[in-house]
């Protein structure tokens, strides 16, 4: 049970960073932390005690107690999506820096209401 709670704790740490930090880059890092924590959680879902990798290495081999391969495939997809979002966030951060000459979100406040 402990690893699951550790994941949730990691999510909370990331959320804390997203909510309280003023530097855009730190917000992005906090956000990545949330993402990794959830991916870790998802990967843990497929965990099996004394499981073996779901790979057939020899002809005609049949073994039981494979770990569930699906969560890993899903996590891989989620990682790819996370890569795309992180890249886009960084690109946005760079453009923001070029425009505003700062990474501090308290100084980037033109939109209100």
């Amino acid at each position: 049970m402990i690893p699951y709670f550790a994941c949730i704790l990691l999510v909370l740490i990331g959320l804390y960073a997203v909510v309280t930090k003023r530097n855009i880059v730190r917000i992005i890092i906090g956000f990545s932390l949330v993402e990794y924590a959830i991916n870790l959680f998802f990967a843990l879902v497929g965990f099996k005690r004394e499981g073996i990798p779901p790979i057939i290495t020899e002809l005609g081999q049949s073994r039981s107690n494979f770990v569930d391969p699906l969560p890993q495939a899903l996590v891989l997809t989620a990682i790819v999506i996370g890569l795309a979002t992180t890249a886009l966030m960084l690109a946005l951060a760079m453009r923001i820096y070029e425009k505003y000459r700062t990474f501090d979100i308290t100084e980037i406040r033109r939109l209100r209401g």
Binding site: V18, I24, I27, F31, T85, L88, M89, L92, A93, R95, I96, K99, I108, R109, R110, L111
Partner: peptide
Amino acid sequence: ELEAGFKYMV
């Protein structure tokens, strides 16, 4: 646009 985009994204 950039500010709104970043806020929206987060």
